Computed example of a mutant assay.
Amino acid sequence: MPISFNQNVIDEFRANGGKVGGPFEGGDLLLLTTTGARSGQPHTVPLGYVREEGELVVIASAGGAPDDPHWYRNLLANPVVRVELGTETFDSIAVPTEGARRERLFAAVVRIAPGYGDYQARTERELPVVVLERPETPTREVLSLADKLLEAHTWLRAQLRYVREEAQAHVAGRRASLGLQMRQHCLAFCEGLTHHHRGEDAAIFPALARSHPELAGTLDALGEQHRAIGRIKDELVALLAAVEAEQPERLRADVERMAAELEAHLAYEEAELLPALAGIPFPPVG
């Protein structure tokens, strides 16, 4: 089976530190890896990008086709994406822009790359303008499993704080609708929480149970907390899929309920596990 055009570009990009020839030579190109909305499998595409307002911006143009490209539909379902930019690789939250911000960014993109204006003229759909949000730089060096746990908790707390602020603004009437920005951050938080808890349940907790049998009761309690928080998270995801403008108080209540349980869980986990985890190097040695 012949290698696809996209795969040739991807291979060349990775082999040459982000530089490619052919029709993309000299252009600003990145690789975006999304998780399939249906398959759950990684899917990588090369995309042109523009830097504007301090953000990394890509357009779901599909060359002006009538339907959104698959990668855009994937990131609506799974907002956490992987970006390869030059020799850098990092995780990002993909956030489609709306309203005035979308119009402003699209106009800026067209000034730099006029072809996107031509693509918009070919289709009746509004081309999505997506910001790839860079993660905050870690403030501490990760040397132990305790450091890694705190790094994960810091990310979860930051996402949860953002979601709570957006939900409260929605209830107060400062947001006309939920908006894709809040939705993407909320889904990213839920996705990150699920991944974090699965890693703990499958690897960290069993290892601690073997090396620190005195923590058996604590680990059982943490596992039960995982299940309780997971149920609230699932309710929140279901609500996001069907929420209407007249349901802001239910959304806020669910967010606050999960926030309270998660904050208590994180604090308990840190108090009980950090001393044991501090003696375990990360990455693992040998």
Rank of each mutant, 00 (worst) to 15 (best):
G40F: 00
Q41M: 04
T44V: 15
V45C: 04
P46Y: 03
L47F: 07
L47E: 08
L47W: 04
G48Y: 00
Y49P: 02
V50F: 07
V50E: 07
R51H: 06
R51K: 02
R51G: 02
E52L: 06
E52F: 03
G54R: 02
E55F: 01
L56N: 07
V58K: 05
I59A: 13
A60Q: 09
S61I: 15
S61A: 15
A62C: 04
A62K: 11
G63E: 03
A65K: 05
P66D: 12
H70L: 15
H70S: 15
H70R: 11
H70N: 15
R73F: 13
R73P: 09
L75G: 12
L75W: 05
L76Q: 13
A77C: 10
A77H: 06
N78A: 12
N78M: 10
P79L: 05
V81D: 14
E84W: 07
G86W: 02
T89C: 07
D91P: 00
D91V: 07
S92D: 11
S92A: 15
S92P: 04
S92M: 10
S92W: 05
S92G: 05
I93T: 08
I93N: 00
I93Y: 00
A94T: 07
V95C: 09
P96S: 15
T97F: 04
T97L: 15
E98M: 11
A100V: 13
A100R: 10
R101P: 06
R104E: 12
R104S: 13
F106H: 07
F106W: 05
A107V: 04
A108W: 00
V109N: 08
V110S: 00
R111S: 06
R111I: 03
R111D: 08
I112K: 09
A113E: 14
G115H: 07
G115I: 10
Y116K: 12
Y116N: 12
D118E: 15
Q120D: 09
A121Q: 07
R122G: 11
R125S: 08
R125H: 07
E126L: 13
L127A: 14
P128Y: 02
P128F: 12
V130G: 12
V130W: 08
V130F: 09
V131M: 12
V131R: 10
V131S: 13
V131L: 14
E133N: 06
T137L: 11
T139G: 14
R140D: 10
R140Y: 09
E141D: 11
E141K: 08
L143G: 05
L143H: 01
S144H: 01
L145D: 04
L150R: 14
A152H: 08
